[in-house]
């Protein structure tokens, strides 16, 4: 049976608080590690934001190339990047508290 690719949940469905990792396991030997681990910052971004970061790296950080590839204007790409920077700063601030 084909494995269903499930989306990583980031927030608690009951209270909306950010989720943490409690259990990890090795697929090949079955070893399990349990504890309370924080998700890496990038995984806490939305799918769209993660896709933006991947596109940004692929285009060597050229916003002009990104705008061309996505068929949108340069200021729109720059605005998306600025909003993403704000979001990352907010997440980092949350981590620091």
């Amino acid at each position: 049976m084909e494995e269903v690719r499930r989306k990583l949940p980031l927030h608690c469905p009951a209270c909306e608080s950010p989720l943490r990792v409690a259990r990890l396991f090795c697929k090949s030997c079955g070893t399990e590690v349990s504890g309370s681990f924080e998700l890496p910052l990038i995984t806490r971004l939305s799918d769209k934001e993660q896709a933006f970061i991947i596109d940004f790296v692929k285009s060597s950080g050229s916003l002009k190339d990104m705008a061309k590839d996505r068929g949108i204007s340069y200021p729109t790409v720059r605005n998306l990047l600025d909003d993403l920077i704000d979001r990352i700063k907010l997440l980092e601030k949350g981590d620091a508290l």
Partner: peptide, 10 residues
């Protein structure tokens, strides 16, 4: 329209 065109084109 500015999501698609801006700058020199606009």
């Amino acid at each position: 329209p500015f999501e698609r065109i801006a700058g020199g084109t606009a």
